[in-house]
Amino acid sequence: MGEQTAPDETGPKQISMVEYLKLGDEPHLVANVCEACGASYFDRRNACAACGAREFSTERLANTGEVRTFTIVHRAARGVPAPYISAVVDLDGGGRVKSNIINIEPNPANVTLGMRVRLATYVTATDDDGNEAVAFGYEPAAA
């Protein structure tokens, strides 16, 4: 499902690490949005958890927003580099997403509640065929 951009037809590809991240010229997130009440979900739902309706459409979410809450994880799961900043971001125009705050030193002095951020992508892993998994995070943006 997720778009893949390939240098050629047969060589290694880039693949988004989760299906709701769409790559391409301007990487962005998409959500399954309830057609009745507008509640949004990153995974598939049989019926809307907010209102019970069963029709969903796929909608693009904004790349900018503000930090609603964060933590700086020092004791991380095995294999995960630490410390890192985990945050919940309120996206402009609606939707809430959890990811890392990136391209900034993980120090409480550098993160403020309500801070403006924008989506950024990076390669997070490579498989044995040389395919690259692309992750997203949020980096500080000018207010």
């Binding site: 997720g2 690490m17 994880v73 990811s99």
Partner: peptide, 27 residues
């Protein structure tokens, strides 16, 4: 359910309890 190709923990934020409850407090 998210069509992930690698683990999301630590890449797309944290879902481990100390961090989840830290975020609840910071909210």
């Amino acid at each position: 359910r998210f069509g992930s190709v690698v683990g999301v923990e630590g890449r797309l934020g944290t879902n481990m309890m100390p961090g989840v409850f830290a975020q609840a407090g910071m909210e």
